[in-house]
Amino acid sequence: MNLGRALPSRSNRRPRAVLPAVAASAAMLTLAACGGGATSGGGGDTNFVTNTGGVQTVAKGERKAVNKIAGETLDGKQLDVADLKGKIVVLNVWGSWCGPCRAEAPYFAKVAKETETKGQDVAFVGLNARDANKGAAIAFEKDYGVTYPSIYDPTSKLIVNGFPKGSLNPQAIPSTIVLDRDGKIAARSLKALDDKKLREMIDPLIAEK
């Protein structure tokens, strides 16, 4: 009789997970990939209001400016969000691999065109996250008729560092952050949006004096 302790079979031995540098950077952001259940990243000194649609907003006097968000777009141009001050800026965090991102993309393309046609001074900027190469992201934009620029951010470095502590920052993919005309964070959604919900985030800021 063998009284020794039985060793686990090779089939039951699980290799230790290795977290590559890219994933580690994304983990710092605690982005819930294709999830919308994350809670606010704000601290106790913030005054966020969550309405029934799951959109969080900040009163005008309590808003914080974003940090530097700039880089190369998917089409090889340079874009700095600071240059868009004076406009309402819609920042959409997305990835071509993300199902909810595919669901909301046609609505974003539609509203972007509507606001441009009406001259409402709204700029849309995508933040493309976790796509290992640009090809898939470029194909995504073509498939869904997205004509506004997206900054290529495969390691999520810009997303991690672009939003100040205690602000409404992106914590899921997709996330949508809307900046007021002063470049300050006014609203956030952590889930996919249709055109109606997106307009509910944008229209109050267009009307804001």
Rank of each mutant, 00 (worst) to 15 (best):
residue 1 M to T: 15
residue 2 N to Q: 09
residue 3 L to H: 08
residue 4 G to W: 09
residue 9 S to F: 01
residue 10 R to N: 09
residue 10 R to S: 06
residue 13 R to T: 08
residue 16 R to C: 09
residue 18 V to F: 10
residue 19 L to Q: 14
residue 19 L to Y: 14
residue 20 P to M: 13
residue 21 A to K: 02
residue 21 A to G: 07
residue 24 A to M: 01
residue 24 A to G: 00
residue 24 A to F: 07
residue 25 S to W: 06
residue 27 A to W: 11
residue 28 M to I: 11
residue 35 G to C: 13
residue 35 G to L: 15
residue 38 A to H: 12
residue 41 G to A: 08
residue 44 G to V: 08
residue 45 D to H: 13
residue 46 T to C: 11
residue 47 N to I: 14
residue 51 N to I: 08
residue 56 Q to T: 13
residue 58 V to W: 02
residue 59 A to F: 09
residue 62 E to V: 04
residue 64 K to V: 06
residue 65 A to S: 11
residue 66 V to P: 03
residue 67 N to M: 10
residue 69 I to Q: 03
residue 72 E to H: 08
residue 72 E to F: 02
residue 72 E to Q: 08
residue 75 D to I: 06
residue 78 Q to H: 12
residue 80 D to H: 01
residue 80 D to N: 03
residue 84 L to D: 04
residue 87 K to C: 07
residue 89 V to T: 00
residue 89 V to D: 00
residue 92 N to M: 02
residue 93 V to C: 15
residue 93 V to T: 15
residue 94 W to F: 09
residue 95 G to C: 10
residue 95 G to P: 05
residue 96 S to N: 14
residue 98 C to D: 10
residue 98 C to A: 01
residue 100 P to G: 02
residue 100 P to I: 03
residue 101 C to A: 00
residue 102 R to Y: 12
residue 102 R to S: 08
residue 102 R to C: 11
residue 103 A to K: 10
residue 103 A to Y: 03
residue 104 E to G: 00
residue 105 A to P: 08
residue 106 P to F: 04
residue 108 F to P: 01
residue 111 V to M: 12
residue 111 V to A: 03
residue 112 A to G: 11
residue 113 K to S: 13
residue 114 E to D: 11
residue 116 E to Y: 06
residue 118 K to C: 14
residue 118 K to D: 14
residue 119 G to M: 04
residue 121 D to L: 08
residue 123 A to D: 07
residue 123 A to W: 04
residue 125 V to I: 02
residue 127 L to A: 04
residue 127 L to Q: 04
residue 128 N to R: 03
residue 130 R to K: 13
residue 130 R to M: 15
residue 136 A to N: 12
residue 137 A to N: 06
residue 137 A to Y: 06
residue 140 F to S: 01
residue 141 E to N: 12
residue 143 D to G: 05
residue 144 Y to P: 15
residue 148 Y to H: 03
residue 153 D to R: 15
residue 153 D to W: 15
residue 155 T to V: 13
residue 156 S to P: 06
residue 156 S to K: 15
residue 163 F to P: 12
residue 164 P to Q: 07
residue 171 Q to P: 04
residue 171 Q to L: 12
residue 172 A to W: 13
residue 173 I to D: 07
residue 173 I to A: 04
residue 178 V to R: 10
residue 181 R to L: 00
residue 181 R to T: 07
residue 182 D to T: 06
residue 189 S to Y: 05
residue 194 D to H: 06
residue 197 K to S: 14
residue 197 K to G: 12
residue 200 E to G: 07
residue 207 A to H: 03
residue 208 E to T: 05
